[in-house]
C-alpha cells in the first residue's frame, strides 16, 4: 500500500528516531523516580530485609495474588489472566527480536508449534484486551465511591489498552504481503531489530509501534511503576511479618 509522503515520514520517524527518544525519556523517568524516593528522609522504620520471608511473600502475593484471592475472587481471576496475558505477549514479541524461534516448539510437533506462534497469541490478545476492559470498567464503576483515581491511574490503563487494540488489529487485519525473507524493521541498528514473517498492515503496525513506545516512556512516570515497586513493598511486608513473628 502506498503511503502519502507526510504519513510515510511520520511512520519512518516512529521507527528510526523515536526509539532514541523513548530510551531517553524512560531513563529520565527512572532517574526521576529514584531521585524522588531517595530524596525523602530515610526514616527509622522497617526491619532489615529478611530474604526468605521477603521471597515467600513476593511469590505468594505478587506471583500468585494470594491476597486478592482472599478478598475478591473475580478480580483475582482477572489479574491472573491479565498478567498471563502480559507475560505471554512479552514472550511472543521476543520471537520477533530473535530471542527464540518457532523451531523451539517443533520438537513437540509442527501442529503444536503452529498453535504456539499463530493460534494462541490471537486468543491471548483477546483475553488481554478483555481483562483490561474489565479493569477500566471496574475503576469507573467504583470511582468517587470507593476510590479516587489520579490522572495517571487512567493514563497507564488507557495507553495500554490502545497499544493492545492496535496490536490485536495487526493480527486480525490482513498483512500487506508475505515476503520471501523475513521483513526487518530496524529501530536501532544492531541493537533493536524486529524480524517479521509478514509485512504487517502498515497503519496498525506503525501506530502500535508509537503507542508501545509511549507506554515504555510512560512506565517510570506512571502508576505502572508498581510493576517494580510492588515487588519491593511486598518484600518489605514479608520481612515485617517475620519481625512480628506472624
Amino acid at each position: 500500500m502506498a503511503l502519502n509522503g507526510a504519513l510515510s515520514a511520520l511512520y519512518s520517524f516512529f521507527v528510526t528516531k523515536l526509539p532514541y527518544i523513548t530510551i531517553a525519556v524512560f531513563l529520565l523517568g527512572v532517574t526521576y523516580r529514584l531521585q524522588r524516593w531517595l530524596s525523602a528522609p530515610k526514616g527509622p522504620e522497617g526491619p532489615p530485609l529478611h530474604w526468605p520471608s521477603a521471597l515467600k511473600y513476593v511469590v505468594l502475593d505478587v506471583v500468585l495474588f494470594r491476597k486478592t484471592y482472599k478478598t475478591d475472587k473475580l478480580m483475582w481471576l482477572v489479574l491472573v489472566l491479565f498478567h498471563i496475558g502480559t507475560g505471554g505477549i512479552l514472550f511472543g514479541h521476543m520471537r520477533g527480536f530473535h530471542l527464540w524461534s518457532a523451531s523451539m516448539f517443533e520438537v513437540l510437533g509442527h501442529g503444536f508449534a503452529e498453535f504456539m506462534v499463530h493460534t494462541l497469541p490471537l486468543y491471548m490478545g483477546w483475553m488481554f484486551l478483555a481483562t483490561q476492559i474489565y479493569l477500566l470498567y471496574r475503576r469507573t464503576r467504583l470511582e468517587g465511591k470507593q476510590l479516587q483515581s489520579l490522572a495517571n491511574d487512567y493514563g497507564a490503563l488507557v495507553i495500554l489498552l490502545i497499544t493492545s487494540i492496535l496490536g490485536q488489529g495487526m493480527r486480525i487485519f490482513p498483512p500487506e504481503a508475505i515476503p520471501t525473507e523475513t521483513y526487518s524493521v530496524v529501530f536501532i541498528p544492531n541493537l533493536i531489530v524486529l524480524h517479521l514473517e509478514k509485512v504487517p498492515s502498515h497503519h496498525w503496525f506503525f501506530w502500535h509501534v508509537l503507542f508501545t513506545q509511549l507506554l515504555v516512556m510512560y512506565l517510570p512516570w506512571s502508576k505502572l511503576v508498581h510493576v517494580v515497586s510492588g515487588v519491593a513493598t511486598s518484600a518489605l511486608y514479608g520481612s515485617r511479618r517475620r519481625k512480628y513473628d506472624l
Binding site: 523516580r33 524522588r36 524516593w37 531517595l38 525523602a40 528522609p41 530515610k42 526514616g43 522504620e45 522497617g46 491476597k67 486478592t68 478478598t71 475478591d72 478480580m75 467504583l142 470507593q146 476510590l147 479516587q148 483515581s149 489520579l150 491511574d153 502508576k223 511503576v225 508498581h226 515497586s229 510492588g230 519491593a232 513493598t233 518489605l236
Partner: peptide
C-alpha cells in the same frame, strides 16, 4: 514521608481492594 512510605504512596494503585 519516608522513602519507603513515598514508594508505597507511588505503588498504591488506588485499586480499592482494601475498601470493603
Amino acid at each position: 514521608f519516608t522513602r519507603r512510605q513515598l514508594m508505597e504512596l507511588d505503588t498504591c494503585a488506588h485499586c480499592a481492594l482494601c475498601t470493603e
